[in-house]
Design a protein around this nucleic acid. Structure first.
Lengths: 150, 150
DNA sequence: CTAGCACTTAGAGTTAGCTCGAAGTCAAGA
DNA sequence: TCTTGACTTCGAGCTAACTCTAAGTGCTAG
């Protein structure tokens, strides 16, 4: 057995790439119901608490609000009775992430087209290159879009 | 030649999945320097203006702020002199999107693990299934993670 | 034993991106 | 002609997620 290592809020903040302010804010909002305190009230974070921040970050980045994350944390403390709710939450998040991925790929396609558009203009020295021979330009850009996407 | 079709702000809003309020807000912030007005001041949107909204949406969704999008729109009106700046902007956006895609995929991996975790618990009727036979559970979840990721 | 620093709290302030309301203009239909 | 409804502007208000300030407490090194 190893003795338990504790982190201060500042150390935890560095590990999780947050500020101590933000961690206190999360705590105030009920996102961290599990953290220990010293008798004087100082928060003592454990190694395993890092995982909770990973989950919080994952849920936040995939579109959940602070209040919804709090709800999830509440479920976690309620034990087996909320397994179903928690499963559904992650199934919903998965759907959302798949939509987000689709959207991002669409944006990437658009961006690649624009890169082709401006690179061509840069090489020609003028945007007018896209005005002349409209049909050719259109064909070329459609190809460019397809090629870049592969 | 077809006669030019004009849209009212309400029609354009519907097409672009925005509200008229939001379009006016974008206009006020300088994102729409190209739109025509009637003598009485009503905005008249053209078919080709839809494309501008697509670009605005693309830049916004990939992390650009309203002010930065305005800067881009200003560049567009300055012609050939800003080709390089515009090209660089899209090259930067591409990098950002690639990072975003990587992050999202990481989150998806986490979510898939959680789905496995809660599905297993649901089938067993209790989360305790993950406490017993820790080594086996750990191996199983590592496999699950890998399998789901393929 | 005291200086200094990290911690605590409550609560106010900030920023982005809308979102809404008030007051007024304009054009078409009954 | 009058009403209706969509448009206009200006400016205030809202929400989320921080971000910071002020006032105070409590270990620890010199």
């Amino acid at each position: 057995m190893m003795k338990k290592k504790y982190y201060t809020i500042a150390q935890m903040a560095q590990i999780c790439n947050l500020t101590p302010h933000t961690i206190r804010y999360y705590d105030k909002e009920g996102l961290l119901p599990f953290i220990d305190r010293t008798p004087s009230g100082t928060r003592h974070f454990k190694e395993e608490d890092v995982e909770a921040f990973v989950i919080i970050n994952c849920l936040k980045e995939t579109g959940l609000g602070i209040k919804e994350i709090k709800t999830f944390m509440d479920w976690c403390r309620q034990g087996d009775a909320t397994i179903d709710k928690r499963l559904n939450l992650f199934l919903e998040q998965k759907k959302k992430v798949q939509v987000q991925l689709k959207e991002l790929k669409k944006h990437l396609k658009k961006i690649d087209y624009k890169i082709w558009y401006y690179q061509t203009a840069k090489d020609a020295g003028t945007l007018a290159v896209h005005d002349k021979n409209k049909c050719v330009a259109t064909l070329k850009n459609q190809n460019a879009g397809k090629v870049k996407l592969k």
